[in-house]
Amino acid sequence: MVVNNKKIIIIEDDDFISRALKIKLEDKGINILIAKDGKTGLDIVKKEKPDLVLLDLILPKMSGYDVLVELKKDIVTKKIPVIILTNLNQNEVEKKVKDFGAIDCLVKANISLEQIFKRISEVFK
């Protein structure tokens, strides 16, 4: 599978959200890193250089927007695809994060774990 041994970081402050994701994705053979705030997340991305970032927007210490901006500023992390996972269901949010360089913006409550996995698979195709 294309996702095998891929390294994905989930930057998400809600434990059970990240846990559900972790279970689903690890089940598919993906290596999962978890960060519970924006700042830690950014540090881990810089250090670990994962294959993909699943990024929440409302985060302690550093917002998802700022993490995104920082990632896209850095020449090394710039190329890592970022998918925003949020419950802010607004056009303006989607437009903003895409402008900042996110490849997609998914609304958590409206999407199943299976759909998230499918979307991730598409990225690695």
């Binding site: 419950n87 409550a109 774990l113």
Partner: peptide, 16 residues
């Protein structure tokens, strides 16, 4: 937004 987070949890764990 606050409501949606736990709802997401329920959604995903029932899915699992």
């Amino acid at each position: 937004h606050q409501l949606k987070t736990p709802l997401t949890g329920i959604k995903w764990f029932t899915e699992l």
